[in-house]
Design a protein around this nucleic acid. Structure first.
Lengths: 141, 141
DNA sequence: CAGTATCCCTCATGATACTG
DNA sequence: CAGTATCATGAGGGATACTG
């Protein structure tokens, strides 16, 4: 019998690919910014620092868990700073770093493409969903 | 009693936000391109059309299911075309449309930022993971 | 105020098997 | 060759309750 099934082969290929992707800079960035809450947080902080509660209100539907998790991830990546003021009650401010700010133009370019072309995409979707009927002669009953 | 609990309030806010996000062009685009296989497919097709089997080989770890699903989604969005040649055996070619091609520069800008700054991000991560020890005087035993 | 801890549940992904 | 169909799983995300 074969020492290696097709399934095993594929699994190996997947492993190698995953390893490659894990170290791919573009992949890492995409994984970060494509997170729903990340983009919203970056946007909210674009105009200046905000407190935890502010973010919680501005980003309407976010749960505490996801907000905290998102902020921690961004802090870890050096995209924002977390400043604790040990008053009573405690106050915590979040602010974009230079690195975080440098990301905003990238987000803007994404937004720009989207706003210019999303209509074409939506039209394409509608056409596609209407079925391939357009390229077929109407089938008779 | 309150006609609306805090939980209900939050749920409503979430609903409204979700609805907003669902129609936000930038969000839609991010959701598309951030998909692991989508970016790989777009990249693979950047240099010209390829057959299903080619894509399956080039994008090493992809399963048939995910490849087909990805290609269908991109076709639906008008980002690529699917051309069936009814020979025996059948032959199917995938090719980026003008719309799909116009997306490549956006991907490039993402890649560019990542390659320029990912090192800073990784340094930040290492520092963060080392603990906040750097900003605290070494705690004595 | 700004979190942490816990449970729960859905949905996306992948492996496998079958087909025109 | 180029898919479709079906099933299993596991990670992500939300609701809820508790705390310094």
């Amino acid at each position: 019998m074969a020492t290696r099934t097709a399934a095993q082969r594929r699994a190996d290929e997947r492993g190698a690919y995953d390893a490659y992707l894990a170290t791919c800079p573009a992949r890492q960035l995409l994984d970060r910014i494509s997170d729903k809450w990340v983009s919203l947080v970056l946007n909210a902080l674009a105009d200046g620092p905000l407190r935890y509660g502010d973010l919680n209100r501005i980003i309407a539907g976010v749960s505490q868990k996801m907000l905290t998790q998102t902020l921690r991830a961004l802090e870890r990546d050096g995209l924002l700073t977390r400043t604790v003021t040990p008053s009573v009650p405690v106050r915590v401010d979040y602010q974009l770093t230079a690195l975080g700010l440098s990301l905003l133009p990238v987000m803007a370019s994404i937004k720009s493409w989207a706003e210019c072309h999303i209509e074409q995409v939506q039209t394409a979707r509608t056409d596609y969903d209407r079925g391939t009927a357009t390229e077929l002669p109407a089938p008779g009953p």
